[in-house]
Design a protein around this nucleic acid. Structure first.
Length: 270
DNA sequence: CTTGGGACCTGGCTGC
DNA sequence: TGCAGCCAGGTCCCAA
């Protein structure tokens, strides 16, 4: 499940392979992934266009094209972008043939992924909150953005309008590192706890980027290699295992219909 | 405005 | 062995 570190890794590894290249041929296998515009218009407007830049914002990939339009891709739960895969996948949704002979393939088992070709990227990614790993997101900014909210902290961390790129796994890991119970109301957190959570978010995300993402479920890098960030997870997806700090069984609790993993001893509610 | 619940989507796993 | 039902969760949509 690609969150910020996974999408960042995909962006970094795709970058040298696509910058300056143009699309020689594009095939939409599953029209459902293409949200905007129509298949015909998409193919007509993308073929021949050169990729001038590639960036990540939140969990979105943005390919800036020479025409001034942007190709935006969201991988959602099970999407992946593969370069020249050795075997054909029955989950292939779109093919991008580059002018140098390389082929970029969008695969997506659960068909939740999405793709847009738009003139104004803000129509798709304009509602995202600040990037957590830039100076747009300091501890002070985080504290001020939390002010006035009273939802459980876990739900707010998953709100892409609050901060962009944190998903279920890294929210659980950051809360564990900060020793904060995921159901704690935001307005009950002390300033020390907010400070601690801020640094935990930084640590967890940077560490996962260094490890090239977490290969839980279907995440693979463009060349087919896996990431290793999941080996450092302490609670996420550790259902039934023991807390690495105190040995208490890790608990699972649904929050907003998301499986939430935490240590009931290290992360107390009151 | 914030909050929370359901829908979307597929396939692996569990338990009867 | 077959099969129903749970689970995975990013984001959108809607209601309160």
């Amino acid at each position: 499940m690609p969150e910020l570190p996974e999408v960042e890794t995909i962006k970094n590894e795709l970058l040298p392979r696509v910058i300056g290249r143009f699309f020689a041929r594009v095939t939409i296998i599953d029209p459902k992934v293409l949200r905007q515009p129509s298949v015909d218009e998409f193919c007509r407007k993308i073929v021949g266009q050169t990729v001038s830049s590639l960036k990540r914002q939140g969990k979105y990939l943005v390919f800036q094209l020479s025409s001034g339009k942007a190709l935006i891709i969201h991988l959602k739960m099970t999407g992946a972008l593969l370069l020249n895969p050795e075997q054909h996948s029955r989950h292939a949704r779109a093919l991008f043939q580059l002018d140098d002979g390389n082929q970029l393939i969008l695969i997506d088992r659960r068909r939740l992924g999405a793709m847009w070709l738009v003139r104004d990227e803000a129509t798709i990614i304009g509602k995202l909150g600040p990037e957590p790993l830039t100076t747009d997101f300091t501890a002070e900014i985080m504290a001020s953005r939390l002010r006035g909210r009273q939802a459980p902290i876990k739900a707010v961390l998953l709100d892409q309008g609050f901060v962009a790129g944190i998903g279920n796994m890294y929210a659980d890991e950051a809360l564990f590192a900060a020793r904060i119970h995921p159901l704690r109301k935001v307005n009950s957190l002390s300033s020390q706890e907010v400070q601690s959570l801020y640094h935990s978010i930084q640590d967890v995300l940077w560490s996962a980027i260094r490890d090239k993402g977490a290969s839980i479920d279907t995440y693979v890098r463009p060349d087919g290699e896996l990431g290793t960030a999941h080996f450092s997870f302490r609670v996420a997806h550790h259902r039934g295992e023991l807390c690495p700090l105190c040995g208490t069984p890790i608990q699972r609790l649904p929050i907003r219909n998301r499986g939430t993993y935490f240590c009931p001893n290290c992360q107390k509610l009151s």
